[in-house]
Design a protein around this nucleic acid. Structure first.
Length: 726
DNA sequence: GGCACAGCATTTTAGACAGCATGTC
DNA sequence: CTAAAATGCTGTGCC
């Protein structure tokens, strides 16, 4: 089937032709045959890289040509940006909406295609974005994620809400291969296309004692260049001109393997030196220095502790072929499109609740699917490593030949329902108990449990009772209505339990204290706390003792409660360090985290502090202002004294501190000092722009993020935080 | 006394969504 | 349903 014959706008056909896309892949033809251009719903469950995105894109352009509007839901922000780039420049107006990339609602609605994360869509629904009712085509990427325990319910609810809101809307769901595609297709009233077809041949095998064993072809011997099996697998592929992805179970393993690979590869190329230098330039941290060292030799590691700059350099280096191997935690498994000729799934056991557990088949398939770069590799290889002869068969049985898991709805979980039921009521999607039950009847959960006994009605009743008890919802007979509090919680998009934790703490707090609030926020279910290490206990205990007046809660009883408390205090300590201008490197060292972790914690904290300030203006007025100040401080990582300066555009953490230390502490003082005094501190260009602002009565702030090069302190390790001497 | 090393004990452990209010080149 | 690997420490044996 030829692209040229499809009912598509000429612009798109031209763009495809330029990229050499002339014929459809077989699964894509099946999608066309399933009636995607006749507004039929579709569930397309085929392997990665077999052209799902293009199927969706073609249908989107068909809709746009007919005056429609498309919403493309993705699970990750990075994916949203990637799809945004993909779809842009092909004749459609494209927009992104994620928590960090946002446009005003009305502006967003002017696009033909909006790419958004599921949570963002949910939030837009809660905040009543009017253009959502104009969506004629919904594309759900990675649709199998409705089975994910933590975020699946949101995706399912968003789909259900949109289906209810826009009855004529076409749905295209794209999914990895799953165990029960028929069930999902049935729920969506969609035609089902499944296929194992891939543009690049995928060979799945198990390595054991010097050779990769395949089911349907000869073993492949791997030269024993080193004493490490995993390294040999990498060197083998690199020698052949390919690249390698190695999936491991922990950050430490990822780093250790990258070092080993760097030693084995010992490459030396200008491109690698450039990338390494770029990382070194960024790096004030041990992690960065280690990474730079690895990259110089052609290897890298990848996990959530990397700063976004470091991640970007590693991904780009791999994409352009200079970095030969990345050892990665699951970050890369589900994220960006970063294929490699050989994928080594080295660790198929991962730590979880109650010990090491084998990763799910679906996750294996996802990682294996990364093997083989279309048009670049002659084939792709996915290799598991067996440690014993017995394991070889087990691995074939449990992964390579195993059927992927079935997807199950996560909508009967009380934790998820609390938030979603509240939003249904707050947005007047549902106005009574029967309404809520009727709505839930349209979910995948209900479809799955047709004619079977289920407990969801009881769960819903319990959740509604809880919401009433906490005064987020009022009930008058069957009629339900959200209170001002409940509406706010729904719009803030925080877990109702988090709201309760915050409101409760605010009510009990005698005086405002930064630490008190931060510890409260770290205790909410919306913030994951840091891991507690053995040596931390004593330090944290002493810290609590010294700061007991600033904490809004005393020592709890019970071991688990105590441990949770220590975790939240530790997390609050990190945030406090950050807002006291402790350097990134120092925080990394003290808390044993990476720059990426700091960023994540800070981002979550800023979101929750904002929520807290809104809740405070409802329940504890006097706290609203100090909370708003803290929000700015945590956002920029500055002490209180820099608050006046940070308001200026172009002034971030570093420059504000430099100005302050130069004796310029307010915009007024900057104006009085004049350009001559500013240039030595800020450089000519920034000085001029800042001066223009203070002379023009100061402007609003949309400052670019600043590089972190704050002054160094001499403290090291968490113990130094208390200023103690052992 | 000092060093090497076996063997036992302790420690550590993945990831990443979300607000708001503005207008835009 | 379910832990494993790396690191730290201690005691022993040997020179």
């Amino acid at each position: 089937m030829k692209v040229a014959d499809l009912p598509l706008p000429q612009t798109l056909k031209t763009r495809y032709a330029e990229r050499g896309i002339e014929n459809l892949y077989p699964p894509q033809e099946a999608c066309v045959a399933a009636g995607i251009f006749e507004k039929k719903n579709l569930l397309c469950a085929i392997p990665t890289a077999s052209g799902k995105t293009i199927v969706a894109e073609m249908v989107m352009h068909r809709h746009i040509a007919d005056g429609g509007k498309c919403l493309y839901i993705v699970p990750l922000r990075a994916l949203a940006s990637e799809k945004f780039e993909d779809f842009s420049g092909k004749g459609a107006k494209v927009g992104v909406a994620t928590g960090d990339l946002d446009r005003p609602d009305a502006y967003l609605g002017r696009n033909d295609i909006v790419v958004a994360t599921s949570e963002k869509v949910d939030s837009l629904l809660r905040n009543g974005a009017p253009w959502l009712s104009k969506i004629t085509l919904l594309v759900v990427d990675e649709c199998h994620l409705i089975g994910s325990p933590d975020r699946g319910a949101t995706l399912e609810m968003v789909i259900a809400k949109l289906l209810m809101k826009n009855p004529g809307m076409q749905v295209i769901a794209l999914s990895a291969t799953v165990g029960n595609p028929g069930a999902i297709a049935g729920w969506l009233n969609a035609a089902l296309v499944t296929s194992e077809w891939r543009p690049v041949d995928l060979r799945e095998g198990v390595y054991f004692e010097g050779a990769i064993h395949f089911a349907e072809r000869e073993d492949r011997t791997v030269a024993g260049k080193s004493r490490y099996d995993d390294l040999n697998l990498v060197l083998d592929t690199v020698a052949e001109g390919g690249q390698c992805l190695v999936f491991v179970s922990s950050r430490r393993n990822a780093e250790a393997f990258a070092k080993r690979a760097a030693g084995g590869l010992k490459l030396s190329e200008p491109a690698l030196d450039t990338a390494s230098a770029a990382i070194e330039h960024e790096a004030q941290t041990d992690l960065g220095r280690t990474l730079a060292l690895c990259v110089r030799n052609g290897a890298a590691f990848h996990h959530a502790g990397l700063s976004s700059a470091e991640r970007h350099i590693v991904e780009e280096g791999f994409r352009n072929g200079s970095i030969r191997v990345i050892s990665s935690t699951p970050t890369l498994a589900a994220g960006l499109n970063l294929p490699a000729r050989r994928v080594v799934i080295r660790d198929y056991l991962r730590f979880g609740d109650g010990g090491m557990a084998p990763i799910p088949v679906g996750e294996y398939k996802q990682m294996a699917g990364r093997a083989g770069r279309p048009h670049l590799d002659p084939y792709g290889e996915a290799v598991l490593i067996a440690k014993t002869a017995d394991a070889v068969n087990d691995l074939f049985e449990n992964y390579i030949d195993a059927p992927p898991e079935e997807i199950a709805s996560q909508c009967n979980a009380e934790n998820a329902l609390r938030s979603h039921v509240l939003s249904l009521i707050a947005t007047a999607f549902c106005r009574s108990r029967p309404d809520v039950l009727a709505f839930m009847d349209r979910t995948f959960y209900a479809y799955e449990h047709q004619g079977r006994r289920s407990t969801i009605h009881e769960t819903i009743e319990r959740v509604i009772d809880w919401l009433c008890d906490k005064e987020m919802v009022t009930a008058l007979g069957d009629r339900l209505e959200a209170t001002e509090y409940g509406t706010l919680v729904s719009r803030l998009y925080i877990d109702p339990r988090s709201a309760e934790t915050i409101v409760d703490a605010l009510a009990k707090a005698p005086d405002f204290a930064d630490l008190g609030l931060l510890e409260t926020l770290a205790r909410t279910p919306d913030m994951l706390t840091l891991y507690l290490r053995k040596d931390d206990y004593e330090v944290i205990y002493r810290f609590i003792d010294e700061h007991i007046d600033e904490l809004w809660t005393g020592l709890p009883y019970g071991d688990d409660e105590m441990q949770a408390f220590f975790c939240s205090v530790k997390t609050a300590m990190l945030l406090l360090n950050w807002s006291e201008e402790v350097t990134e490197a120092m925080i990394c060292e003290r808390f044993n985290v990476g720059p990426g972790d700091i960023h994540n914690k800070v981002e979550t904290a800023v979101w929750l502090i904002h929520a807290a300030s809104r809740l405070a203006s409802l329940f504890k007025r006097p706290f609203a202002q100090p909370i708003a100040d803290l929000e700015i401080r945590v956002k920029h990582g500055i002490k209180k004294e820099l608050l006046p300066l940070i308001k200026l555009r172009g002034i971030g953490r570093v420059r504000a501190r430099r100005l302050f230390n130069a004796g310029l502490t307010t915009p007024e003082e900057l104006r009085a000092a004049g350009i001559g005094a500013l240039v030595p501190v800020l450089g000519e260009k920034t000085a001029a722009s800042v001066l223009a602002q203070v002379e023009g009565k100061g402007g609003g702030k949309t400052a670019p993020p600043e590089k972190d090069e704050a002054p160094r302190s001499r403290q090291a390790f968490l113990s130094a935080f208390c200023g103690d001497e052992e």
